[in-house]
Design a protein around this nucleic acid. Structure first.
Lengths: 339, 339
DNA sequence: CCAGCGGCTGTTAGCGGTAACAGTAGCAGA
DNA sequence: TCTGCTACTGTTACCGCTAACAGCCGCTGG
């Protein structure tokens, strides 16, 4: 018996393992996948050979042959805003049990980029796709619709899903917050948010918010938008700008918690009476901010739950209707005065 | 000619496009990949057919045949701490130009989990791997070493890389911070950080920090560890605990900016004189926190640059030595008194 | 004593593309 | 006119693995 080591530079295949262990490739395949019956001693021999050779199976070949891919595409707009990491946590926690693996793609809120990310992912023939939002390019919708796999659009349910949707109604969330603010007696209300034409969820919240204001005979007193930069810092700057321009404002509604926190810190530093003289609210319920001197009023977006539900649909653990609506709870915190 | 539409439920292949456009599969393949010469009218016909059918290529088959995969595995411990998203940004910015695509895997600081993530990724035969840290299981190191692709270990250079390493010396970073603190005249110094046995970089920073203290004849006056929870909140709690236990402490060194920020807010709320009575410093230089009332002393970890350099190595745009060391700069902020 | 079955292993034929090579036609230059 | 080249298109042989099926053996039950 000569040294069985072939070309050390050659990447290993099933054949190498089968030769090293004296059985057919098929048997090796069966052992490594724990499929079908293999005699215990044979199994041992094979595992031993695979281990010493350092064999790593080629899933590309496996997937092509079996027409099965254990990947789930997850398409999200951003990783840097605290919200999607938590969705990912929810997804992973459910997928971990199944053999499925999430693969994330980031779009930076650009529709064309989203389209190409989706195309790229579909070309790997995943077992399912999870995509943030209901707004996509025509082509993207078409591709997804034809893919023949479960598609779950997450975060939002104000619209028509391709296949399934799991999320909250941002329109309603905006409305609810407005109602709470009005009930608390605030009347001169301003909005501060992202200037992102493609952040449809922020847009819908504002829409619902204004709708509810309108119903109470109110309109926004002022509004301020930003894009890019440190959210905390932007929150300070925008708040300063709004209060300079409209000194009589008595409530600031922020499109997310991060800028809301910046605004809160600024107000406190100015010695403003929060929530007496002025109230504040954000959106998302990011745990990250729990350590602020005062707790910002917010509304959790059910991120973990959304991730879990979406993953369950992909994994076939849930056979839901077209839309799954979750209901965020308002967390009044310390920045809205008690009625 | 009857309707050429086959089974609408059947996923499309090159053959479908070739039949629809009246050329061979090979020609279709060439058109779709922009490879080789194809007559303009033929190209048009093929593209038209592909478009109307809604054909999405099967990269699994393509990769198997061409032995080329445009994927780069990126293995990181966490997505939720602001540091890796920025590394990802650096990686993407470089990879975007090449045909390469990053695929992230998250390990939650668990070595075994890391090993299995690496195994899973290698089984898709990526063109390269980028992995946080230099500490891996024996098996993981072996797999990576045998994979025959470029491997870049990032963030840290205090150790022996498998192939390439791009990062900073955390030991040195800790030393530098200690020296700055001592120079500024602080003497009773405490450390507050994560209780994570597998956060090797935080460990090395502390090690370098204590080393430098030792050289100046000092030792840590107190130390406090935490795990899990909202970092900002933990920062408050730990700071309160340390100051209750060791009221004479005059400097707090945090293992990251987030808990440092929590501590800073707490100190300010207590009316403590920062940086006169007590100084603070963190680590990472997260832009997120720019909006704090006072700027926390920190050290940027060159995250963007690390991502870029690593991606350049994978993309073959750089042919560096084994280690690429970057040098963080100390940002004194407003929480270390001027000498 | 043999059919039948369960446990185990091997053989064959692809999965859907692409590399490499093999034409074919048209045209320029010798 | 013929050679040789360029531009274009097709044919063939895999890539590494798995589904499906085909043995083979030993044992059980009729």
């Amino acid at each position: 018996m000569t040294k069985p080591i072939p070309d050390p530079r050659h990447t290993l295949t099933l054949r190498d393992v089968s030769e090293a262990s004296g059985v057919s490739e098929m048997t090796v395949s069966r052992v490594l996948r724990n499929r079908g019956d293999v005699a215990a001693p044979t199994r041992e021999k094979v595992l031993e050979a695979a281990r010493t050779l350092g064999y790593v199976p080629n899933k590309i070949a496996g997937a092509l042959a079996s027409q099965r891919v254990n990947l789930v595409g997850v398409v999200i707009p951003s990783l840097s805003n605290m919200v999607f990491p938590e969705v990912m946590t929810g997804i992973s926690s459910v997928l971990d049990g199944t053999g499925l693996q999430p693969v994330v793609g980031v779009t930076n809120y650009l529709p064309d980029r989203e389209e190409s990310v989706i195309y790229e992912m579909l070309s790997w023939r995943p077992s399912g796709m999870i995509i943030a939002g209901l707004e996509h390019t025509e082509a993207a919708r078409a591709m997804l619709g034809r893919a023949g796999i479960p598609i779950v659009e997450i975060m939002d349910i104000d619209g028509d899903p391709i296949d399934h949707a799991v999320g909250i109604s941002h329109r309603r969330a905006g409305r609810q917050m407005a109602e709470a603010i009005i009930t608390a007696g605030y009347r001169r209300i301003a909005f501060l948010g992202t200037q992102m034409p493609n952040d449809h969820r922020a847009r819908k919240r504002l829409q619902g918010f204004e709708e509810a204001l309108g119903k109470a005979g109110l309109t926004l007193v002022d509004r301020e938008f930003y894009s890019g930069g440190s959210a905390l810092l932007k929150g300070r700057e925008m708040t300063a700008a709004v209060l300079a321009r409209s000194p009589d404002v008595d409530f600031l509604y922020y499109s997310n918690d991060m800028i809301g926190a910046g605004g809160l810190l600024w107000c406190l530093a100015q010695g403003l009476d929060v929530p007496g003289r002025i109230g504040l609210a954000g959106f998302n319920g990011v745990e990250l901010l729990d350590g602020l001197p005062r707790k910002l009023a917010t509304m959790d977006a059910c991120r973990l739950e959304i991730g879990k539900k979406a993953a369950e649909i992909i994994a076939g653990k849930a056979m839901p209707g077209e839309k799954v609506e979750l209901f965020p709870t308002l967390q009044a915190g310390d920045t809205i005065r008690g009625r």
